[in-house]
């Protein structure tokens, strides 16, 4: 009880009301139904974060599942000093970044082919010229935007996803990524500039 009061006061001090708090406390006591409510409440956002970071729906679903399982295992360690959602999304972001690294590694491996007859290793880069199909899809803005996001480096991709797609505040993003707000600001500026160039290059205009 005293612990609960202390947590309430902490929440009052930090100035946020966590709507998940009750469910989290119940879940910490072993109430799986409460945890299921948390899953229902956050699954969509988690899948979307993972989807925009990893770029594929299947990977996103896997990552979100893994994130929930990790959260369930470690929920006793969550001390209600921050929003539960922030904690949950941090797990999702980290797992998404890990999955992204795996995807990039696998893609690079795939793009390296060994020409045994020549006895040399050559790298076949993805074609820079848009083929006919891509020309047809040029006006598919949404795909173009996703493609441009996919071309961003991991750190820039993550801030864009969290800020412009998911709408998190700078301080929340800083908390999730464990970086200062100034860093979030500068990364976001550079990410948007890169996206602007990418989109202009793809569509000619924004």
């Amino acid at each position: 009880m005293a612990q609960a009061m202390s947590k309430l006061s902490e929440n009052a001090e930090t100035g946020f009301m966590d709507e998940d708090r009750e469910l989290v406390l119940r879940s910490q006591k072993g109430d799986d139904d409460a945890f299921e409510q948390l899953v229902l409440r956050h699954q969509k956002k988690m899948v979307n974060i993972a989807f925009r970071i990893t770029g594929t729906y299947e990977d996103a679903c896997d990552v979100a599942q893994d994130a929930f399982v990790s959260a369930y295992k470690e929920i006793q360690r969550f001390e209600c000093k921050s929003r539960f959602s922030t904690w949950l999304y941090t797990i999702t972001v980290n797992l998404s970044k890990n999955r992204l690294k795996q995807i990039i590694t696998a893609r690079n491996r795939h793009e390296v082919s060994i020409h045994a007859e020549e006895g040399a290793i050559s790298i076949d880069p993805p074609s820079a010229d848009p083929n006919a199909l891509e020309m047809l899809e040029k006006r598919d803005i949404k795909k173009g935007v996703q493609d441009c996001i996919a071309k961003l480096e991991e750190d820039f991709r993550v801030v864009v996803v969290l800020r412009d797609i998911q709408g998190f505040a700078y301080n929340e993003i800083g908390a999730m990524l464990k970086v200062a707000e100034g860093t979030v600001k500068s990364r976001l500026f550079r990410a948007r500039e890169m996206l602007k160039k990418c989109l202009k290059g793809r569509f000619g205009e924004l």
Partner: peptide
């Protein structure tokens, strides 16, 4: 640019998602 990003649709989790998560949990 920001408008484009914000205009991206939200994907829906698969119908089995909650059950699968809870089964694993």
């Amino acid at each position: 640019v920001v408008a484009h990003l914000q205009g991206l649709e939200q994907v829906e989790p698969p119908a089995w998602f909650t059950q699968k998560v809870m089964a694993r949990v």
